[in-house]
Design a protein around this nucleic acid. Structure first.
Lengths: 197, 197
DNA sequence: AAATCATATTAATCTAGTTTAACTTTTATT
DNA sequence: AATAAAAGTTAAACTAGATTAATATGATTT
């Protein structure tokens, strides 16, 4: 794998735990670098998710198609985030979600069949993953609270403040889907917000 | 700590990792057993959450009071589940949530200041917690999807099927709060469901 | 047994957000 | 530059769920 790409991952991990040079080399020898084009799928609903992926560059959406064929966006992932269908990955059962690239996207992929070896070789990784998943879980719980206690307009304003970088890169109708509202209603909210100031 | 109480925790942990007898003894010597009465608070909004708690018996609700004074229930916890404000616990910052007992509740508490020692003494616990948090995160993501893609009636039916034990122990108005609807609307849903069959 | 307090029901009115559909603007393709 | 395709806007009619308020049921206390 290209040295400088791996370094981005190591920098990220070293914010949580400190790896020795030997551990760093072991890690980089086991993970896989891959680049996807805009529109390509990293995971498809129904497949078994074989990789947990760290995003080096680009942007993905994780979404779910319901029985009526409606798309519901669960999350976006950009640089320094993770993407995959974790439920499918940890249980090796068919994925509920699709993960699709909204831009050319570079990833470092952690294959399922080596991740146990990796934990055995580098126990610190167990701690690292525990810590980032704890953070993700807390964020997810907070999103549930927001979905119940805030209006659509409030949720949009929150999203815009929290993820200013994401908003600019993504079409409005996908943001509407992420917020759980229609694109028409988001359009109305935006024009109200403009009128307000 | 009472031997048989500790055994419930060990049985639970041993479903994920296998502890040696020495590790089991170390663990039980560090955690704290405690019983709360109905109505008592385990965590209060604004406090720093000092314990991650395993529920031996009883039932708790985790909730958030919004700016308008409205209560929003984030989760219920019963036997063999965990309860706390994890966000507050991991960052040691003021809690967003309250955790209150809906019945007499027995807990095993993992104090914040010993948890690092515990990970050091029993590295398997790191793996154990990683695994249960992964599961919790996946469940949380699925709940977000349901909150967007299902109607209130569908969410209620799902809840009833998923947690039949919880429904019987808890007043309707709390279930309404958990589902993100008013108690009046839940009452309407229930009478519709009765009329349907 | 009466009184009180918490919980649940019902119904009328209201509103945040959806649906449908026509139109406009922006971006990509030839 | 012209055309097509994708994304975004506006507005009218509609609906899921909220609000308000009155009533009913069920526990708990005295």
């Amino acid at each position: 794998m290209i040295k400088e790409k791996g370094q981005l991952l190591l920098d990220y991990i070293n914010r949580y735990v400190s790896l020795t040079e030997e551990e760093e080399n072991t890690l980089l020898s086991k993970v896989v670098y891959r680049s996807y084009l805009k529109g390509q799928f990293i995971v498809q609903q129904g497949d078994i998710c074989k990789y947990e992926c760290f995003v080096l560059s680009g942007c993905t959406k994780t979404f779910y198609i319901d029985d009526e064929g409606q798309e519901h966006i669960v999350m976006f992932s950009i640089e320094d985030w993770w993407t995959a269908d974790m439920g499918s990955f940890i249980t090796q059962t068919p994925a509920d979600y699709n993960v699709q690239c909204l831009e050319k996207t570079e990833l470092i992929m952690f294959p399922y069949d080596i991740i146990e070896d990796l934990y055995a070789a580098i126990p610190k990784l167990e701690r690292f993953f525990r810590q980032i998943i704890q953070k993700a879980f807390v964020a997810s719980q907070k999103r549930i609270v927001r979905s119940f206690s805030l209006s659509a307009k409030e949720r949009y304003v929150y999203f815009r403040n929290q993820y200013p970088k994401i908003e600019q890169r993504i079409p409005q109708y996908m943001i509407a889907s992420y917020l759980g509202i229609t694109k028409e209603f988001l359009s109305k909210i935006k024009s109200e917000l403009i009128a307000e100031q």
